[in-house]
Structures are given as C-alpha cells and as structure tokens.
Amino acid sequence: MTAEPHETWTLRHATAWVFTANGSLTRPVVLVGDAGVELADLAARADHPAYSLLSELKARGHDLVLLGLPADGSMTGDGGTVQNAVARAVAEQLGSHPLTVGGTGQGALAARYALAGMEYQRIDHRTGVLFSHNGAAPELEDEAELSRMGERPRVPRFLRLVDEGVTDGLTGEITEDAVTGAAAPSTGPLLPEEYGSWLLDRLP
C-alpha cells in the first residue's frame, strides 16, 4: 500500500509529495526520482517492507519530500524543477536546519545541476548534503553546462551511492565520500538498507 503524503506540492512541470516527521517541515530531505517514475511507485519503494527509508528518516526527525520527474525531461529542465522544489522547501521550513537534496538516476543528475545553478546565480539553497544514487551520466551537452556551473555545487557535502558496474560520471575528485554495493532489484526498496543506513549517518 502506498504511503499517504501529508501534503502535495504542485510545481513547475512536476508534483511533490511531502511526508513530515512531526507535522511541520523542519528537516527536509528532498529526494528526486528517476525520470518517468510515478510518485506512487516512488513512495511505495521509499516505504518498502524490506527497508523503509521513509520510516527511518521519520525516526530521526527528518521530513521526506519526494519529487517526480517527467519521462521526457532534460537535465536543465529537470534542474529547474528541482530548484523550484528546493525553494519551496526553504520557504515553508520552520527553523534553519540544513536541507538534504539528492536523487536517483536522472533525478540525481538534476539535483546536482539544480544546486550548482543556484550557487551560480548566488541563490542560497541552504543545503548541507547533496547525494547521488546511481546517478545518470551527463550527455556531452550536459557536461558542458555542468562545467560552466563548476561541475558541482560547492557548499554542500557531496555523497555518492553507486552500484558496481554503474557509470554515473562521478569521481573522487567531484564527490567527497562514497559507498559501493551490489545491484539491487528494481522492485525492491528505493535505497537498499546498506545505502540507507550509510546515508542517514551522514545527514545534517
């Protein structure tokens, strides 16, 4: 059964589901799904019975903002959508606890570009950690755009979670800490327990 969000955000070209830990948005984790993944499927995998990232986040007082992306998007267009979600989280957050922003597949690449673009525009995204789970490798034109933005945002700590054999275009020169594991089934948890526990221990 799909977990029910406490709030739904209608954003530019996308929708986000908000799951709060204590009734209000205080410690947001913005997680961007892979391109074309329905929010209901994203939420079901985030609350998978084998490992519920949603429950583990809530237990530590973190709120989860799940963002779905269209199937036919681009890094720059999706990045604008992620910027919209981050700005909404900053505007609605109570307090000033650093955000966590990241994603899986195309969502990870969009999150990286979004925060780099905000810094390029001198917009305060208030993010302490950026994470990439099996991020999509940028195309040639995307690489040029990322290079123009400085490859990555400089303010947050950049964490990499990647399955063996996955090419995500990231290196130790770009990210600051990494964990590698065996490939998990696409119908399993959004993050395997190994990755989820590792990430949770590094959140602000």
Rank of each mutant, 00 (worst) to 15 (best):
L39I: 06
D41W: 00
D41L: 05
L42F: 08
A44K: 15
R45S: 07
R45I: 12
R45F: 01
R45E: 08
R45P: 10
R45M: 09
H48P: 03
H48L: 07
S55E: 14
K58Q: 14
A59N: 05
R60Y: 10
L67S: 10
G68Y: 00
A71C: 05
D72Q: 15
D72T: 10
G73W: 05
G73R: 07
M75N: 04
G77Y: 02
G77D: 13
G77S: 12
G79E: 03
G80Q: 10
T81S: 12
T81P: 00
V82A: 11
V82I: 11
V82N: 05
R88D: 01
A89H: 10
A89W: 07
A91P: 04
E92C: 05
Q93H: 09
L94K: 09
S96A: 15
S96L: 13
P98M: 00
P98R: 02
T100C: 08
T100M: 09
V101H: 03
V101P: 11
G103E: 14
G107D: 09
A110L: 03
R112D: 03
Y113I: 02
A116R: 02
G117R: 10
G117F: 01
Y120H: 15
Q121F: 06
R122H: 13
D124M: 06
H125C: 02
H125K: 04
G128I: 02
G128P: 10
L130A: 00
F131K: 06
S132H: 00
H133D: 05
A136H: 07
A136V: 12
A137K: 09
A137I: 09
P138R: 02
L140V: 05
L140G: 02
E141W: 02
E141L: 09
E143N: 03
L146C: 01
S147W: 00
E151H: 08
E151F: 03
R152Y: 01
R152L: 02
V155M: 01
V162D: 01
V162K: 06
